[in-house]
């Protein structure tokens, strides 16, 4: 078995491509978020691999840690917004009903 730099890059390229495909083909917000996580994961994989291969561990690993933090924060914000949207669909109906009565 062999493992060269370009192999790893191709793995992450395919992962990134799958993420892009998922972003375009799914129209459900949460599915799109999952695809986004795949894309960010591809970037993080690239950073870790590049750090390991070029010997620049310190900056590459630090960046990868921050990338993971960002991805987590992004998921939190995105889910809060999605839940708010689903809630408002219900509450909007309530508002409309109240308006008609009043």
């Amino acid at each position: 078995m062999i493992l060269y730099t370009y192999h790893i890059f191709r793995v992450s390229a395919v992962l990134f491509g799958l993420g892009v495909f998922g972003m375009r083909v799914r129209r459900n917000a949460i599915s799109m978020l999952l695809s986004l996580e795949l894309m960010i994961n591809a970037a993080a994989l690239n950073l870790v691999a590049a750090a390991a291969f070029t010997g620049t561990y310190i900056s590459g690993f630090s960046m990868a840690v921050f990338v993971i933090v960002i991805a987590a924060a992004e998921a939190a914000v995105a889910l809060a917004i999605f839940i708010a949207l689903f809630k408002s669909r219900r509450s909007i109906d309530v508002d409309e009903a109240a308006e008609m009565k009043g």
Binding site: S12, L36, M39, I40, A49, I70, A78, L85
Partner: peptide, 27 residues
């Protein structure tokens, strides 16, 4: 907000991938 978060996160993922490529080649 939903539109913004999806496009914004998409753009973040793209630029992170770009950075990782720059880092691959230059360290």
């Amino acid at each position: 907000a939903v539109k913004y978060v999806l496009y914004g996160a998409f753009s973040t993922a793209i630029s992170l991938f770009g950075i990782s490529m720059i880092f691959w080649a230059t360290g």
